[in-house]
């Protein structure tokens, strides 16, 4: 149990640092801004109580906000994503349901499941984040294009990371 908490906290710290120290420095274009730190919310164990899920998502977004000079922006987007997670887990659940002692990872439930799960949540997060950042509908389709391109990059990074780290 304690081991699990430690592992997830370490992942949180690592992902925040990876985001603000490395990903934010790779500036490809206005249209492509991957946010890979949301991987933390995707990988948090199934049995995590709801309040802990929301609080840790807030901590995650808050630490990214601190480094990016954007108070409240990433916090609200990650909390929104964490709120959607139980629903998305229900929608995408395999026929037999989720087994005990497994984690929401590609290596347990396969590529198709992980892709669906990731695409829905990451897209929802980016949608919320980018529209809140711009906070106007003057350039609606331009922002939508930024959301789609950035989501694709985030999703590719997240799935690659799964193949790199959790090899079977």
């Amino acid at each position: 149990m304690i081991n699990l908490v430690l592992r997830n906290s370490a992942r949180l710290i690592f992902l925040v640092l990876f985001q603000v120290l490395i990903l934010d420095n790779i500036q490809i274009s206005v249209y492509i801004n991957p946010f890979m730190y949301v991987l933390f919310i995707l990988l948090i164990p199934f049995e995590t109580p709801g309040w802990l899920l929301l609080v840790s998502a807030f901590l995650l977004g808050f630490s990214v906000d601190l480094f990016e000079h954007t108070p409240g922006l990433h916090s609200s987007a990650s909390v929104f994503m964490a709120f959607l997670r139980p629903v998305v887990l229900k929608i995408t659940s395999p026929r037999e349901g989720y087994e005990p002692n497994t984690y929401p990872r590609l290596s347990y439930y396969g590529f198709r499941w992980f892709l669906n799960y990731t695409v829905i949540l990451v897209f929802a997060h980016h949608l919320f984040l980018f529209y809140l950042e711009v906070f106007s509908i003057t350039n609606f389709f331009g922002t939508l294009l930024r959301i789609i391109l950035s989501s694709v990059f985030s999703i590719v990074l997240i799935i690659l990371s799964q193949y790199l780290i959790y090899k079977k």
Partner: peptide, 21 residues
Amino acid sequence: FHFVILFIIIEFVSLSVAFQF
């Protein structure tokens, strides 16, 4: 409904921070 209530509280706090800072 603690999950929904907590969500609304945290979201309200972060959004007001985002707009008022």
